[in-house]
Computed example of a mutant assay.
Amino acid sequence: MRIIITGATGMVGEGVLMACLQEPEITEILSVSRKPLQQSHPKLKEYLVSDFLDLDLGDPHLKGYDACFYCAGVSSLGMSEVDYSRITYDTTLHFAKALGPNPGMSFMYISGKGTDSTEKGSSMWARVKGKTENDLMKLPFKQAFGYRVGVLTPMPGQKHVLKYYSYLSWLIPLFNFLSSSLVCSLKEVAQSMIYLAKHGHPEHVIHVNEIKLLAKTHQGGA
């Protein structure tokens, strides 16, 4: 399997990349990002793009891949809806179209728990994420999936971990105890994405419990 990963210089993308590098069925990974990764691996290639909105539709660097794990994104904190939409919606949709959507490729998009599929709720970020999910699913991919992740635990040895995780990590076992639908690991995210790219799924919105189940199924070799 040959995959594209975006956002590998951030926490989510880095964790997904590290997990995918450990998977024997992944033969090639193309990291598309603004900054170099400062790491090397026989499976890993890099394509540096200063602004995804500048990508040409049908960019030849993005051809021939089986799936895209889109992990790039920003927090909406302190941002206007216009600015947040440009990064979250416009950039994501343009990147997806630059891939040349086709029935041989799957697209996995990290959205978030609470994303609003109706696009009409009071939460700005949830509306924008919902519209992004909805419009990705209209493109002619094999399938496009919205990943409604909650609290994410990093891969061992990650460099790009959000600062507040060092203060909240002791709470993660409590979150797990209170609800299994709150927490999953970035390894589980990556493994579930690989499974979906191979086998598909009847649902396009993937929640935490499903991420865990799909990852376990992948580990079992299904």
Rank of each mutant, 00 (worst) to 15 (best):
G150N: 04
R34V: 09
S179M: 09
G10I: 00
L186E: 03
Y167Q: 12
L55E: 14
Y47P: 05
I4S: 02
S75M: 02
L196S: 03
I211M: 15
I3L: 08
L196V: 05
L44D: 02
T115K: 07
E119F: 11
Q191Y: 15
S85P: 13
M155V: 12
E23S: 03
K142E: 06
S179L: 10
L213C: 08
L57V: 09
L139T: 03
H199W: 15
R127K: 12
G112R: 01
V183K: 01
N102Q: 03
S111K: 10
G10W: 01
A215K: 00
H204R: 15
G73L: 02
G150A: 05
K45N: 15
G220Y: 06
G221S: 08
Y65D: 01
N209Y: 07
R148P: 03
S192L: 02
S166D: 13
R34A: 09
M11H: 14
D54F: 08
H160Q: 12
F145G: 00
V208N: 11
K216Y: 09
S166N: 13
V183H: 01
E188G: 06
R127L: 06
K198M: 12
F177H: 14
E119V: 14
T92V: 04
M193P: 02
S180Y: 15
E23H: 04
F69W: 02
M1F: 14
S180I: 14
V149W: 00
D56M: 10
K187P: 04
Y195T: 06
G13Y: 00
M1W: 11
L139G: 03
M137L: 12
M124S: 07
P140M: 09
S117T: 10
H61N: 15
Y89E: 05
M18Y: 12
D66F: 04
L37G: 02
L174H: 04
V161Y: 00
Y47D: 09
A197C: 10
Q143L: 05
Q191K: 15
S181L: 08
G146C: 00
G100P: 03
Y167C: 09
D90I: 04
K120L: 08
D116S: 06
D90T: 07
G64P: 11
G104Y: 14
P154T: 04
M108A: 08
D51G: 10
L17G: 02
E23M: 02
K63P: 05
L30T: 07
L55S: 11
L171V: 13
Y167K: 13
K35C: 09
A197E: 03
G100W: 02
R34K: 14
Q143Y: 08
D51T: 11
A19Y: 01
P202H: 12
Y109W: 13
F95Y: 05
T118R: 05
E188V: 06
R86W: 04
N209W: 07
K35I: 10
F177S: 14
S31V: 14
L178A: 05
Y47T: 07
L21Y: 04
G221R: 07
L186F: 04
S40P: 09
S166W: 13
